[in-house]
């Protein structure tokens, strides 16, 4: 078990390294290939050669790619020193560097953005799991009924709706039309739990609608499969009450496959719900991702990519470990 864990952790670190290396390479090489110059982002109206060269030096753009990447890695592990004119600033580990544009440390920016994305992802996840599983189970139990058909039709519709459309619809109906809800906004939970809730309810519901649809379909399929298993028949034959059969035996193995999917979905969402955050103007990781890309801000892009990959890798790991616990057939080793 320990050996397995260590191997998985090493794997995770390697994956993260490769992700940063690829990101770094692409964003280093693409401007070279297209002939655009990141330094030009930061000069004023007059692109004086002196100024452009000054910026290149400042951003370290004149170093070879290996040196730049090495400095980036060293910053994460040991921190980095930056010259800012009269003195030197130490950016302590884990240091993701400074944004090109605003000269801020990337790490605190992303840590700041994290609660927004976490609130968004967790809130939506709770909603969609509850709704998805509930509707899925009921559908499976009443297979072929009008209820089943109705739920599955809605679910399929839900899967087919882009969030940037449902989001806009929700905004125009509930915020501007009926004025039931305030515009989506993030307030830290500690500051004001009620505002935190009302500000996020709209993105939660919109996001949850999409995922709940998927989960209802998945739950239904898994439950149907499980209910057809021999041991369920045996349980029924033993004379167990239907509630026990479903609750104790059916749900357990019927929902196990959902764990994987759930872990991956949450991991991916934590890495930045770009579209949701764009539609609702929330300043989470997804917002910074878009911001970084639009401004060619390599440190920001690298930071967000690293965070996103980190969540996906970690959730994968957790899912696999959890599997060992819930499903006795799976042995880790």
């Amino acid at each position: 078990m320990l050996a397995y864990l260590i191997r998985r952790l090493i794997n995770a670190v390697v994956t993260l390294l490769v992700v940063t290396l690829v990101t770094f390479g692409v964003f280093f090489l693409v401007p070279k290939a297209t002939g655009s110059d990141p330094a030009l982002l930061y000069v004023g109206k007059q692109a004086d050669p002196v100024a452009v060269e000054g910026i290149r030096t400042k951003l370290g753009l004149n170093d070879p790619i290996i040196v730049q990447y090495g400095k980036f890695l060293k910053g994460i592990v040991a921190g980095r020193d930056y010259s800012n004119g009269p003195d030197i600033t130490h950016c302590s580990a884990p240091c993701l560097g400074y944004t090109f544009k605003t000269n801020q440390e990337v790490w605190p920016i992303l840590i700041d953005a994290l609660p927004v994305t976490i609130s968004l992802a967790i809130g939506a996840a709770v909603l969609w799991v509850l709704m998805g599983v509930l509707f899925g189970v009921i559908s499976a139990l009443r297979r072929g009924s009008i209820w089943d058909r109705g739920v599955m039709t809605v679910a399929l519709a839900g899967v087919s709706l882009p969030i940037y459309f449902t989001g806009l619809l929700a905004l125009s109906i509930f915020v501007y039309g009926l004025k039931w809800l305030p515009n989506a906004e993030y307030t830290p939970f500690i500051d004001n739990p009620i505002k935190w809730f009302t500000g996020l309810i709209l993105p939660w519901v919109t996001l949850a609608f999409l995922f709940a649809a998927t989960y209802a379909r998945l739950t239904r399929a898994n439950m149907l499969e499980t209910l057809g298993e021999d041991y369920i028949r045996t349980a029924r034959a033993k004379g167990l009450r239907e509630r026990t059969v479903i609750g104790k035996h059916g749900l357990r193995s019927g929902l196990t496959p959902l764990v994987t999917v759930f872990g991956l979905d949450v991991g991916a969402l934590l890495g930045g719900a770009i579209l949701t955050e764009a539609v609702f103007n929330l300043r989470g990781l997804g917002y910074w991702a878009l911001q970084g890309i639009r401004q060619n801000d390599l440190p920001t892009i690298l930071g967000v990519t690293l965070f996103a990959a980190f969540f996906i890798v970690i959730m994968n790991l957790i899912v696999d470990l959890l599997y060992g616990v819930i499903d006795p057939r799976v042995r880790l080793g």
């Binding site: 930061y42 000069v43 004023g44 007059q46 100024a51 060269e53 000054g54 910026i55 030096t57 400042k58």
Partner: peptide, 11 residues
């Protein structure tokens, strides 16, 4: 004049 430290303003 320190364009390597404070770039972006009018020149």
């Amino acid at each position: 004049f320190a364009q390597d430290v404070v770039p972006g303003g009018p020149l």
